[in-house]
Simulated assay, not measured.
Amino acid sequence: MIKHTLLALSTLCLGLYTLGASATPKPSAQDAFFNTLSKHCGKAYAGKVAVDNAPDGGFAGKRLVMHVRQCSDTQLHIPFHVGDDASRTWVISKTATGLELKHDHRHKDGLEDSISQYGGHTKELGWPQVQSFPADDFTKALFVREGIPQSMGNTWQFYLYPKIFSYRMVRQGREFRVDFDLTKPVKTPPTPWGWQ
């Protein structure tokens, strides 16, 4: 009887140990998105404007390139080159509660633009393929101060699929999206303005 009880207890303990060892926690949708994007570190991709319902000519006819340039466990720096304009860098950071997006804008001399560091923080888990960043309070105050209050309702989104990476900005009455072809890496562009 004692032998059978000890055998049953041993089997139970072994089963629980095996269950615990194999139950690796599944990454959250945000971690999965961040990790997948990190796999493109060092690569650059050409893109094209897919949607722009209020074109102002700033992107028309210009070569568009994104470059996953700097990657750490908690932050990604992705310059977005528009022709010879190397002023824009998307900065995606892990935080205690999700992901944060900032747009770092620089002048050619490296000084920060008056409209810079705007963006937002995820409010939902999103999906491994899609993350959304509604404008945060800092951004709204910046846009009011700089005379563009219509942008207070901005939400920025990234779509990440095996063949396409998209950057999208949307608000009431306004939509802009650039799609990048992940199947054809291109030559890495020069260092963005203000970064070493």
Rank of each mutant, 00 (worst) to 15 (best):
W127Q: 14
A96V: 00
G119W: 11
A21F: 13
K108M: 06
H105E: 15
S72F: 12
L16C: 01
L182S: 06
V82Q: 04
R69V: 08
W156D: 10
F133D: 12
L142D: 05
S166K: 13
A96K: 11
G15Q: 03
S28K: 06
H105V: 15
P128W: 01
K48Q: 14
Q75H: 12
I115N: 14
R145G: 08
C13T: 15
Q30V: 04
V68F: 05
G98N: 10
V82T: 03
D109K: 05
G147T: 00
W195C: 07
T183V: 05
T36L: 10
L7K: 04
V91Q: 05
E146I: 08
F33S: 06
K94L: 03
H107T: 03
V65L: 03
G110F: 05
L64Y: 00
D104G: 06
F59K: 08
S116N: 07
D136E: 09
F80T: 09
A29F: 05
C13I: 07
K94A: 01
C13E: 07
G194K: 05
I115H: 04
D73N: 03
K43G: 05
F143C: 13
W195P: 04
D109V: 00
K62I: 01
D104P: 02
S87M: 08
F59G: 04
F165C: 02
A50F: 11
A60T: 14
D56G: 14
C41L: 07
F133G: 02
M152V: 13
R171D: 08
E100L: 09
M152A: 15
R171A: 09
F180M: 03
F176S: 02
S151P: 10
G58V: 00
G147D: 07
D85R: 00
T5E: 11
M169E: 07
A44L: 04
D137R: 13
V49P: 02
P149W: 01
P190V: 03
D136P: 07
V170N: 08
G119S: 05
D113H: 04
F80G: 06
K48H: 13
A8M: 13
I148W: 12
R174N: 11
A46W: 01
F80Y: 01
T74A: 05
V186D: 04
Q196C: 11
Q157R: 14
T122K: 01
G153H: 06
L14F: 00
Q196A: 10
V51E: 10
H4P: 11
T97F: 13
Q30M: 04
K26I: 15
K163I: 13
E100V: 00
V82R: 05
Y45L: 12
G58Y: 00
W156C: 01
A21V: 14
F138S: 14
K163R: 07
Y17G: 15
T36C: 07
T155I: 04
T5G: 09
D179T: 01
A8R: 02
G120K: 06
F165K: 09
E175V: 06
T5V: 05
E175A: 08
F33G: 09
H40F: 01
S151Y: 12
K94R: 14
S87G: 03
P162S: 00
Q129S: 14
K43L: 15
A32Y: 00
